[in-house]
Design a protein around this nucleic acid. Sequence first.
DNA 1: GAACTGAATATTTCGTTGATTGTTCAGAAA
DNA 2: TTTCTGAACAATCAACGAAATATTCAGTTC
Lengths: 204, 204
Amino acid sequence: MIKDVRERIIEAAKGRFSHFGYGKTTMAEVAGDCHMSPGNLYRFFPGKLDIAEAIATADYENHLAHLRKLALAQNRNLRERLRDLLFEELRRTYNKLERDPRALEMAQVIAHQRPHFANWMLANERKIIVELMEEAARRGEFLPPMNKEETAEMIQSATMKFRYPQLWSKLTLPKLERELEGVLKLLLDGLCPRQPERNEEHAA
Amino acid sequence: MIKDVRERIIEAAKGRFSHFGYGKTTMAEVAGDCHMSPGNLYRFFPGKLDIAEAIATADYENHLAHLRKLALAQNRNLRERLRDLLFEELRRTYNKLERDPRALEMAQVIAHQRPHFANWMLANERKIIVELMEEAARRGEFLPPMNKEETAEMIQSATMKFRYPQLWSKLTLPKLERELEGVLKLLLDGLCPRQPERNEEHAA
DNA sequence: GAACTGAATATTTCGTTGATTGTTCAGAAA
DNA sequence: TTTCTGAACAATCAACGAAATATTCAGTTC
């Protein structure tokens, strides 16, 4: 049962990080779990943070595949698929933190030290939203003429609150879901019907 | 020229806070500026943080009055007034931070030590959005049947990103405005026309 | 007695130091 | 040659005493 060394390191680190937290885990411990010296870890990863990033990346890519399935589900229409997508993201974040509060520490460390990581996640999800809309167009579901990339960006903007646990301030999952439901309804249906705009001088 | 003592304290503190920052300002200095002893400050404020809160409150109530004017402007319709409102909030936050980076420190201290303060601000603005919609209904502008309180909450949810500079990550004001413009358009017009929903089992 | 002082006290912040831990690398092991 | 070790080094952290500062209050002033 010889696993790839890199994989063994990741497994060991995953166990330590989720048991004791990122900060309280030492490279020596991870190395010890793998029956190797600390120095040897650096042949496989540039540093401790990169181990955490590898763990997060693998986990996230899993999630991403799941999201893509929801976004392209055959038996559901545009609204339903967008809803499934956004709800799933919210639930995953919420449940992960609920089950394992130490996940928050890792998320924060990575977000702080590797700002590009959060951007990369957002870009991935935006791509899925675009695919979702393209698929809808292909199926003949009605969509107003629009720039799909831009629309996806706006959908993300409008649902930003549900991606940052720091903004949730004690709200329970049901309350968050109710709120997301409301935002989504507004995004899909609009507050008021289209009407001729008088002019556009404000945005300059 | 005898000003109310409380007012003089606030003025002195405002000067110190915006010059040197909240953390670098001592009660002794504020007292000195008012030609009084540190102890005397406590006859007018329970503590240092309360002086900061008083400053923020006064400043914010000013802003609020301005927002209300925009929200109820006679010569503009629902869309335009909502737009004016949300843009003004964004611009105010952006400009305040741009002009005076020390404002961020105060905002953060207050938000952290007095969580109710941020909630109070949100509630005030929500109230204005409700008034805006009620006024629109009164003027005969079309609005779909809906709970106005709840709709206002959702509008706030969807524009949360524009209230938290920490989420802006280097975006310039024009870029933020473009983004708010897009979100607003989506909120008002909707992504796709209403259609019968098949069922509602997801939210459970 | 109401307004205020300023020294005393309680709390927080700060800088230093020792210990811990991340990282490197010269060389051993295979 | 490739893989790995472990001691050396550098960066970070935690503890703790000292200084700074917020807050209190017995007493003074008017």
